[in-house]
Simulated scan of single mutants.
Amino acid sequence: MKYPFPKRQLNGLVLGAILAAGQAFAQAQQPAQASATAAACKGTIYLTFDTGSQSQAELIEQTLLRHHIKATFFLANEKTIHGDYSLDPGWQPLWKRLAEEGHAFGTHTFDHVYVVRDLPDGKIEVRPQFGAQAGHKQQWTPAQYCEEMQRVDKRFEALTGRKLDPLWRAPGGKLTPNLLKAGQACGYAHVAWAPAGFSGDELPSDKFPNEMLLKKALNGLKDGDIFLAHMGIWSRQDAWAPAVLEPLITGLEQKGFCFATLRDHPAYRHLFAGAGNTQRRP
């Protein structure tokens, strides 16, 4: 039998057609596979991590990678176990990797600034934990607080080339009416956590052992809950993450839960509408 092409060329054409057909089939299966995965989830948990001593940073990253989980990180420039600060250049490789791995990021204020109270003239009394004014009460305008949140955004972009997501978390989770308005005016949506989503990693180990915290989370977390932990806590003697994070994730997976960043949370996904999970603040 004679072929219109040399045999070698014909074989290449056939192989190319087979590969193209296989690729088309795989692409056609992706929506169905995604739907099947979503259908298999009995609920979604949103893991969030605030900066801290950073003693558990790499462990958290590796655990999330191993389970193919995306989380949301809230960043402040906090003192670390290495004697530097969490947004110093030495931490650039970590933040770049986490960004490339698809995690989401929000601001936790640069100097980890706690709100004290609202003032009558619309100002806010605050107390930074770090920086030049650490431990000293300050009276800030909403614009000054906005600038403080944006300092994280600017540093994150300098370290990673990417913008933060339009999310923030007040240190300690403490809000006042003026503070909430300041965040909204600055373009950030505040993120708290569910009652069952408080990891307890800030609590004393002798009164709240890791076994107790793990059981509380596994029994209490439900669909849509936001979970809070830190990337290391100075005050806790028995570190939370090495003992709890892996069994917590495994236990939730066994219950049928899936995980996502806050970009997919019903309360925040409108902030990313039309831009997928790569949306960043302009």
Score class of each variant (00 low, 15 high):
residue 1 M to Q: 10
residue 3 Y to K: 06
residue 4 P to E: 12
residue 9 Q to I: 15
residue 13 L to M: 14
residue 14 V to W: 03
residue 18 I to H: 07
residue 26 A to N: 11
residue 29 Q to W: 03
residue 29 Q to N: 08
residue 31 P to E: 07
residue 34 A to R: 11
residue 34 A to Y: 05
residue 35 S to R: 14
residue 37 T to A: 12
residue 37 T to G: 00
residue 42 K to L: 13
residue 45 I to N: 04
residue 45 I to A: 10
residue 46 Y to L: 12
residue 47 L to N: 12
residue 49 F to T: 09
residue 50 D to I: 14
residue 51 T to L: 08
residue 52 G to W: 01
residue 53 S to Y: 13
residue 53 S to P: 12
residue 58 E to F: 15
residue 59 L to Y: 15
residue 61 E to Q: 13
residue 61 E to F: 15
residue 62 Q to W: 10
residue 62 Q to I: 12
residue 65 L to N: 05
residue 67 H to G: 05
residue 69 I to A: 02
residue 72 T to S: 12
residue 74 F to A: 00
residue 74 F to Q: 00
residue 76 A to H: 03
residue 80 T to C: 10
residue 84 D to S: 14
residue 85 Y to M: 09
residue 89 P to W: 06
residue 91 W to K: 09
residue 92 Q to L: 09
residue 93 P to V: 04
residue 94 L to S: 05
residue 95 W to Y: 04
residue 96 K to R: 13
residue 96 K to Y: 09
residue 98 L to V: 00
residue 99 A to Q: 07
residue 100 E to C: 02
residue 102 G to F: 05
residue 105 F to A: 00
residue 106 G to A: 01
residue 110 F to H: 06
residue 110 F to G: 06
residue 112 H to Q: 01
residue 112 H to N: 03
residue 112 H to Y: 04
residue 115 V to L: 11
residue 116 V to I: 14
residue 118 D to A: 05
residue 122 G to F: 03
residue 123 K to N: 12
residue 125 E to I: 03
residue 125 E to F: 00
residue 127 R to F: 01
residue 127 R to N: 08
residue 128 P to C: 02
residue 128 P to Y: 09
residue 138 Q to F: 00
residue 144 Q to P: 05
residue 145 Y to N: 13
residue 151 R to H: 10
residue 154 K to W: 07
residue 154 K to L: 10
residue 156 F to P: 07
residue 160 T to I: 00
residue 160 T to G: 02
residue 162 R to A: 10
residue 162 R to P: 00
residue 164 L to M: 08
residue 167 L to P: 01
residue 167 L to A: 04
residue 168 W to G: 05
residue 171 P to T: 05
residue 173 G to H: 04
residue 174 K to G: 11
residue 179 L to G: 08
residue 187 G to Y: 05
residue 187 G to M: 06
residue 190 H to D: 11
residue 192 A to R: 15
residue 195 P to R: 14
residue 198 F to D: 15
residue 199 S to T: 10
residue 200 G to Y: 08
residue 200 G to H: 08
residue 201 D to N: 08
residue 205 S to A: 14
residue 206 D to K: 15
residue 207 K to F: 09
residue 211 E to G: 15
residue 214 L to V: 12
residue 215 K to D: 15
residue 219 N to L: 15
residue 220 G to S: 11
residue 222 K to Y: 04
residue 229 A to S: 13
residue 234 W to H: 11
residue 235 S to K: 14
residue 236 R to G: 08
residue 239 A to S: 15
residue 240 W to T: 07
residue 246 E to Q: 15
residue 253 E to M: 13
residue 256 G to Q: 01
residue 259 F to W: 03
residue 262 L to R: 05
residue 262 L to I: 00
residue 264 D to P: 00
residue 265 H to S: 05
residue 268 Y to N: 01
residue 270 H to V: 03
residue 272 F to E: 00
residue 275 A to Q: 13
residue 275 A to G: 09
residue 275 A to L: 04
residue 279 Q to M: 08
residue 282 P to W: 13
